[in-house]
């Protein structure tokens, strides 16, 4: 369900840095930045959520931000990767969390998570069972 048209909100306060929850109710990163696309009349519309170190690095600024962005670039298989982009069309609801309609398995936000999982965590006995 989306809110009525005409609603106003402050992007930095009410959207940025909020937790993204995917369609299955799982954590799927933070709203690290927003993509703004120009319309013909000179106004801009939010077309995507940008998430992950590629987007966060830019906002941290300074040496630390550059380092974060460059680590991300190095880990990423593409030559000059864009940050993870979630189309705003999959957003279901804005609130304390930003909820999506799709599962995180269809999104590209989990590359690092999967790398840690496959290389380390999944190899430890008991990793596939919930604690008892």
């Amino acid at each position: 369900m989306s809110a009525p048209a005409g609603r106003m909100l402050d992007a930095a306060f009410e959207l940025l840095d909020r937790q993204i929850i995917d369609g299955d109710g799982n954590h799927a990163g933070k709203v690290d930045d927003l993509e703004l696309t120009p319309l013909e009349d000179g106004s801009f519309v939010v077309t995507a959520i940008l998430s992950g170190p590629g987007a966060l690095g830019g906002r941290l600024g300074g040496r630390l931000g550059t380092a974060a962005a460059s680590i991300f670039a190095r880990l990423h298989p593409d030559e000059d990767p864009d940050p993870v982009r979630l189309s705003f069309g999959v957003v279901r609801e804005l609130g304390p969390q930003v909820r999506l309609t799709t599962s995180r398995h269809h999104l590209d936000v989990n590359r690092f998570e999967h790398w840690v999982r496959d290389r380390f965590i999944a190899r430890i006995p008991g990793a596939g069972h919930a604690p008892e």
Binding site: Q19, I20, N26, H27, A28, G29, K30, S51, L56, E113, H114, V116, R117, F120, I121, A122, I124, G126, A127, G128, H129, A130, P131
Partner: peptide
């Protein structure tokens, strides 16, 4: 960072 976390789920789901 907004990563999946939690002690209750399978460790592979919060690697």
């Amino acid at each position: 960072f907004g990563w999946p976390w939690g002690k209750g789920t399978k460790p592979v789901e919060a690697a």
